[in-house]
């Protein structure tokens, strides 16, 4: 499902959780929503899922406002960290609720996923561990088969084997039943390869919307004598810099062309790659300091 967000604002008291956010997604892909804690990820997802009404601005899901729109919300599933299920009931009741309320619910698939994550239908939700609760959220999210499925930091407390099981199931089910996924996270390294595109937000604003794979190799570190580095990066987008004695390392955003690479080598500068997580840290910090907009 396509998602269009225009100048979206969401205020809580005197805090702008979303501050004029705009972007548009074509749909049918797995999107990563990245941002630091408190950057507005959950607020954005809540508005997209019609859990909340925005203060101002517009959200269009397949061209229609989702809030109180039965045709749209029945096609959306947002799984939050807190898990919107009956805590006092057994896992079986959670599945029953999915069957009764979700338009595209697949009971057989839900059973299969429960087995994969080793969850018993007889257990009470409140007796589950943090990781098991997260796994239950993943079961509900995947078995909903909603055309727009969103997971908000849904892997919390899950151990590595369960997280990998999640990634594998996500990819397998996405391949078998193509639909739109939005997955929010602040742990990038592990999940970045799952995403086709990423959206980075910070302080309720868009920092970047880019093909995930293109983001790799998008950052370059330039290391060398301080004055030479300064001259070289003068016309480039510098995300951050560090100095050690007379040596300086600058992180720049964007790919260098052949001429620039040659010029750097001639000037005795060392060029190096930037890891995705570092690039993310630099980008969100740069956003806060107003270097990139």
């Amino acid at each position: 499902m396509s998602i269009e967000v225009r100048d979206l604002r969401l205020r809580f008291g005197d805090v702008d959780a979303l501050d004029g956010l705009s972007f548009s997604l074509a749909g049918g892909k797995i999107y990563g929503l990245l941002g630091r804690n408190g950057s507005g990820k959950t607020s954005l997802l809540s508005v997209l899922a019609a859990f909340r009404r925005p203060t101002s601005g517009e959200v269009l899901i397949n061209g229609a406002e989702p809030f109180e729109n039965a045709g749209v919300v029945s096609q959306i599933c947002l799984i939050r960290e807190s898990g919107d299920v009956y805590d006092n009931e057994r896992v079986a009741s959670v599945l029953r609720a999915g069957r009764q309320l979700r338009r595209d619910w697949d009971s057989d698939y839900a059973e299969k996923l429960l087995e994969r994550f080793q969850l018993s239908t007889k257990k009470r939700v409140q007796s589950l561990s943090r990781g098991q609760k997260s796994a239950l959220g993943i079961v509900v999210g995947l078995a909903s088969r909603a055309p727009l499925t969103m997971f908000d930091e849904s892997y919390l407390g899950m151990d590595a084997p369960s997280r990998y099981a999640f990634y594998e199931e996500l990819l397998a089910d996405y391949t078998a039943h193509p639909r739109t996924f939005v997955i929010s996270t602040h742990l990038i390294e592990e999940v970045a390869s799952l995403f086709e595109e990423v959206i980075i937000i910070d302080r309720g604003r868009l920092v970047l919307h880019e093909e995930s794979d293109a983001l790799r190799g998008r950052g370059v570190t330039v290391t060398g004598p301080a004055d030479v580095v300064d001259t070289f990066v003068a016309s480039l987008t510098v995300l951050g810099q560090q100095t050690l004695g007379r040596t300086k390392a600058a992180t720049i955003y964007g790919e260098l062309n052949d001429t620039q690479v040659r010029a750097a080598k001639l000037a005795g500068l060392e060029l190096g790659p930037v890891a995705l997580q570092d690039l993310f840290v630099h980008l969100t910090r740069a956003e806060a300091e107003g270097i990139v907009r």
Binding site: I30, L171, Y174, D213
Partner: peptide, 10 residues
Amino acid sequence: ASFYRINPAT
């Protein structure tokens, strides 16, 4: 994609 846990589009 499923073997390496990467996006099929990639």
